[in-house]
């Protein structure tokens, strides 16, 4: 079973400490939300977890990937990262073309993930013809196409307006339900964490360290059940209590740094 573990990860950009001694692990099928104030190093942490950035100290280890996984550690990006010159199907196929797949297999996988993300009718559309929500669906389809063991999602909904975000959250929770993908979900939006996560890992302001790890009080399948609304609202309030002070401090620091 897939697992990813961070051990004593620290990172600095020049003289700026961004992350300090971060250790946690995410098990098979688990969705861990990383929440914290802006600039606390959440995205940096995700890049380190996925091997796109070398940490200044510490290590990341992962394993137990299913044999069928084509790209065990797979990102979904905040800005979608679609090639503007490729149509929707081409953007999804980009993740598959260099794998040992026949053209027929590639086509089948692309058609399948486009169907799962509601994009079948848009296969030939260019990114510039799509709304933000549809673009991120392409990002999701591309990620699902490679059958990831660990999905690394970097604020996947934060570039979208709030209505589109709600719609996509529904789709996300459905897509993440089936399969035993582990998910590291970076967000500054507590609603997303409360809706999707099994566990919230709360970060302090920069330099980011783990401030608390909070288990969800309600299983994922029952989040939409009105009976649990109050419990979830309380969880959200608890998380916000932990972040509020940090966020206010971070906000002041940012302003102070900008001042001459």
């Amino acid at each position: 079973m897939a697992e990813i573990a961070l051990d004593g990860v620290s990172h600095r950009f020049g003289a700026l400490d961004v992350l300090v001694d971060v250790s946690f692990s995410v098990g098979a099928g688990e969705i861990a939300a990383i929440v914290g104030p802006s600039g606390c190093g959440k995205s940096t942490l995700l890049s380190i977890a996925g091997g796109l950035l070398q940490p200044s100290a510490g290590s990341v280890r992962a394993g137990g990937f299913p044999a069928a996984s084509l790209n065990p550690l797979t990102f979904v990006f905040q800005d979608f990262a679609l090639l503007p010159w490729r149509d929707v199907a081409g953007n999804v196929a980009l993740a598959l073309e260099h794998r040992a797949l026949s053209p027929h297999e590639t086509k089948t996988i692309v058609a399948d993930v486009l169907a799962r993300t509601g994009l079948s009718d848009f296969a030939a559309a260019l990114p510039k013809q799509l709304s933000g929500g549809m673009r991120q669906r392409v990002g999701l389809a591309r990620a699902l196409a490679v059958r990831p063991a660990v999905l690394l999602m970097d604020e996947p909904l934060s570039a979208l307006d709030s209505q589109t975000r709600d719609l996509l959250m529904d789709d996300l929770s459905r897509l993440l339900e089936d399969g035993d993908m582990s998910v590291l979900y970076v967000t500054h939006n507590l609603d997303e964490a409360v809706r999707l996560a099994d566990r919230a890992i709360v970060f302090s302001r920069r330099p980011g360290r783990i401030r608390a790890i909070s288990q969800a009080p309600v299983p994922r399948a029952k989040r939409r059940d009105p009976a649990h609304a109050e419990t979830l609202a309380r969880w959200r309030a608890d998380l916000w209590d932990m972040i509020r002070g940090e966020a206010a401090e971070a906000e002041r620091e940012t302003v102070a740094e900008r001042a001459p």
């Binding site: 890049s47 996925g50 796109l52 790209n71 550690l73 797979t74 990102f75 990006f77 800005d79 990262a81 090639l83 980009l94 993740a95 260099h98 591309r142 490679v146």
Partner: peptide, 11 residues
Amino acid sequence: NLIRMAQSFGL
């Protein structure tokens, strides 16, 4: 970010 995306998919 496009280059990082391509790297993240193992191209």
